[in-house]
């Protein structure tokens, strides 16, 4: 499994290797990265699951980028050149500057892999895939409610431009948004829509819902959605059927959130720290 994305460390070169979760930090190849919102939280979630299930640890591929895009371009370029050689079983694409042209080239390179990786995208990698019309090349997207509205909007190339009435849709409208996104071919094979209620959708229809335990504070905590992406990626990597992996990840994230006894000020690494206990409670095995 190769988990890729940018991290907010200025001038951090493109680095790869096994990541280690060290509470407030993630260590990758000797470099310390804050285990906060974004790619680091996603990798932290994946690592916890891999550790608990005694899987081969995910490989992290991260680069510093504070918004100008230079790190993102290096990441795209590396993957475009090397993905067919690396041929990961699972490829997770996360925070980066969304670039339709480079995402298109990356998907072309992925098609040349001897064995097609399971393709998972969240954050701006999902934005780029949708905007470039490449959503159907992916197996899992993990949008929140606003991002689900973005996938259902035929014109928006970024969630900042979604139609106002779609943004105003509440969580109960997710089935309609899901149907619209699949109709537009703007959805991955499976959608895990993260929110007050988590919806799992395949082939245009909601196939499962997870709503308990309900911890409203989790929505305020930056990175909890990223953790779900990491969990579902690791569970899929472990061989769980995608629908089961999605349902389990939604449940386990909620349980870890509950165990963290969160407030709106809680940090995401405190939720990640509870994942082993949550997985144990859920008795996740593969």
């Amino acid at each position: 499994m190769l988990a890729c994305g940018t991290v907010p460390v200025k001038d951090l070169p493109l680095i790869s290797g096994r990541a280690v979760f060290e509470g407030e930090f993630l260590s990758v190849n000797g470099f310390k990265v804050p285990c906060a919102q974004g790619t680091a939280a996603m990798i932290g979630g994946a690592l916890s699951v891999a550790d608990c299930l005694k899987l081969e640890p995910p490989q992290a591929l991260v680069v510093g980028d504070t918004g100008r895009g230079q790190g993102s371009y290096l990441l795209y370029e590396f993957l475009i050149q090397r993905v067919s050689t690396l041929s990961p079983d699972v490829l997770v694409l996360h925070y980066c500057l969304p670039d339709m042209t480079l995402m298109r080239k990356l998907c072309e390179s992925v098609r040349s892999c001897a064995k097609r990786p399971l393709m998972i995208a969240d954050a701006a990698s999902m934005y780029a895939a949708k905007a470039a019309g490449l959503a159907t090349e992916f197996d899992i997207f993990t949008p929140d409610l606003c991002e689900m509205a973005f996938l259902a909007d035929p014109d928006a190339s970024h969630p900042a431009y979604i139609n106002k009435h779609l943004f105003e849709a509440d969580i109960a409208k997710v089935p309609e948004l899901v149907a619209a996104a699949y109709q537009l071919k703007s959805a991955a094979r499976l959608l895990l829509v993260k929110g007050a209620v988590d919806y799992i959708a395949e082939d245009g229809k909601v196939v499962d819902i997870v709503s308990e335990p309900n911890i409203p504070e989790l929505e305020a905590i930056g990175g909890t959605g990223d953790v779900i992406t990491g969990i579902v990626s690791a569970l899929a990597y472990a061989g769980l059927e995608l629908r089961e992996a999605a349902k389990t990840s939604a449940l386990v994230n909620r349980m870890a959130g509950k165990l963290a006894r969160p407030s709106p000020a809680t940090r995401v690494w405190q939720v990640i720290s509870q994942l082993p206990a949550a997985l144990e409670q859920r008795r996740v095995t593969c």
Partner: peptide, 28 residues
């Protein structure tokens, strides 16, 4: 949009930021 900012009602301090997907968001 896709961004959420949470502040303390009593102190007016920013407690958390969530959502988004572009590379400046974790830095911000």
């Amino acid at each position: 949009g896709n961004m959420k900012v949470t502040f303390d009602k009593n102190k007016g301090t920013i407690l958390n930021v969530s959502g988004g997907g572009c590379p400046d968001i974790p830095y911000l």
